[in-house]
Write a protein that binds this DNA or RNA. Sequence first.
DNA 1: CTAGAAGTTGAAGTAAGCTTCAAGTCAAGT
DNA 2: ACTTGACTTGAAGCTTACTTCAACTTCTAG
Lengths: 154, 154
Amino acid sequence: MPTDLLTITQIAERSGFAASALRFYERAGLIHAERSPGGRRRYARTVLRRLAFIRAARHVGLTLDEIRAQLGGLPENRTPTREDWAAISAQWRERLDSEIDALTALRDGLTSCIGCGCLSLERCKASNPGDVARRYGPGAVYLPRRLREPLSHP
Amino acid sequence: MPTDLLTITQIAERSGFAASALRFYERAGLIHAERSPGGRRRYARTVLRRLAFIRAARHVGLTLDEIRAQLGGLPENRTPTREDWAAISAQWRERLDSEIDALTALRDGLTSCIGCGCLSLERCKASNPGDVARRYGPGAVYLPRRLREPLSHP
DNA sequence: CTAGAAGTTGAAGTAAGCTTCAAGTCAAGT
DNA sequence: ACTTGACTTGAAGCTTACTTCAACTTCTAG
C-alpha cells in the first residue's frame, strides 16, 4: 500500500472522528476517498485538513449542509487555503458575535426580570412570545448542548 | 362550560404553543388538564403561567427533562411563585453567562486564527480535538438554531 | 494456508421535540 | 336531526448527525 494514502482507521485516529462518521461524511459528500483494489477506502492526506475545517465549522455551529455549501463555494471546490480560511473564519466570527449578542440580550432580559415574578404573557421579556420569541423566530431556542451543564435541582 | 376552564384551542392561542405541543407536554408530565364529561381537555388558568415558565426555560436552553425537574423541584410541585422565580432566573442567568463565556472563548480562538491558515490538527484552537473539543466534550457543539442565520456562500 | 483483525454494505436505531395523520367522538348551531 | 367544527387517541413521521448491527469480504501475520 502506498504510504501517501491512509486507511479509515488512521484517518479516524488522526482526525478524531469515528470511522462511522467518516463514512457518513463521505455519503454526505463532504469528503472523498480513493479505493484499494479490494474496495477499502484510501484517503489522501488533504482529507485531514478538510476534516479539521469540518470540525472547526461544527464548533462554530454550522450544519453539515452549510459546511458542504462553504466547501463547495470555494474555487475549484478545493480544501480551504490560507486565504480562504481567513475570509471564512472572519465570517464565522461575525456569526459568533451575533450569537453572543443574542444570548447577552436574553440574559439581560432575565436579569431585569429577577424578583419581579411577572412571567406575564403580556409583559415578561423572557417568556413573551411577542418579544423574545418574535425576535428569534417561533418555537424553541436550542442552545449548545456541549456548552451546557445540567442544572441541579433548586 | 364554566368560564374558569379553558379549551386547548384557547390555551394554544394565549400561550403561543401549538395544541399538539400542549398534548405533548401533558404526556411528558409538564402540564395537566382536567377533562370535560365528554373527555375534552379543560385547562385551569394557572397552566398559562406554567407555560410561560416553560417557554422562558426553553429560551434559556433547558431541555424538557430539565424543565420537568425544575418544576418538580418546587415545593408542593407548584407553579413558580415570585420567590421561586427569582432564585431560578438567577440560576438561568449563570448558565447563560457560562454559555456566553464559552462562545466568546471560541470566537477569540477563531480571531487569533484568522490569517494564520493553520487549521493544524496539532495546533489550531478552532479545530484541534485536544483543545476546543477536549474542553467542551467529544463530538460536535450544537449552537442555537434559532439564534443562527444561514451563512451565504463566500 | 489460515486465523483474526480490519473493512465493506445497507438498513435500522438514537436523541429531542414536536407535528401530522387516520379514524373516530363530542359539541353547538340551525 | 343534521352538519360543521373542535377535539380525542395512538402511531408514525420529521430533522440532524451520527452510531450500531448483521452479514460478509479483504488483508496481514505467522
